[in-house]
């Protein structure tokens, strides 16, 4: 997890195209300036970043389902719940499922677990459009390689 670059996902463990599910993992850094303010003497991962981690997880799944032809953008977050604190150094297991694919939008449900225990969950809506700039596509390809995106899921 590289918070400075908003790269919250470390590794994709599995993508199931038929089931429209994804599993990833991400380790919260031991040290980061965020924890100096959130909070002094009691560092915890901000809830908005847990939501972002679920959004990025969902985003990778949508990229896979759309064969990297369109880019998903966060549109709405519903029923986001922070069920327990997440501390520096903890390993997050995040999974997401697409519950609806509409015309130009999609909805997912995602969960964050630590040691098997649910810490956060949310229902998330994305709008998606063709990649708006070639640099973004190049960047996403590089990120896909970084986190071990399984290229075989893009095969017909």
């Amino acid at each position: 997890m590289q918070l400075e670059y908003f790269q919250l996902i470390d590794r994709i463990l599995d993508i199931d195209i038929a089931a429209k599910t994804i599993k990833v993992e991400a380790r919260v850094p031991e040290h980061n300036t965020i924890f100096e303010g959130h909070f002094p003497g009691y560092p915890i991962m901000p809830g908005v970043l847990l939501i972002e981690s679920m959004a990025q997880t969902s985003g990778w799944l949508l990229l896979a389902l759309m064969k990297f032809e369109r880019m998903p953008f966060l549109a709405a977050v519903k029923e986001a719940k922070m069920r327990g604190f997440v501390s520096p150094g903890e390993l997050l297991s995040i999974d997401a499922t697409v519950i609806h694919e509409g015309s130009g939008y999609a909805m997912t449900e995602a969960k964050v677990r630590v040691d098997g225990k649910l810490r956060s969950n949310a229902s998330i809506t994305f709008s998606h459009i063709p990649f708006p700039h070639p640099d973004l596509r190049v960047y996403m390809d590089a990120q896909a390689e970084r986190i071990g995106f399984p290229q075989q899921v893009l095969l017909p």
Partner: peptide
């Protein structure tokens, strides 16, 4: 447009269709 996504979702589910919002737009 954002609220309409929720409406489209509910319509898609209720009628078993996919409203072609992108085409219409």
């Amino acid at each position: 447009s954002l609220d309409f996504l929720d409406i489209a979702f509910a319509i898609d589910k209720a009628f078993g269709i996919k409203l072609p919002l992108e085409k219409w737009t």
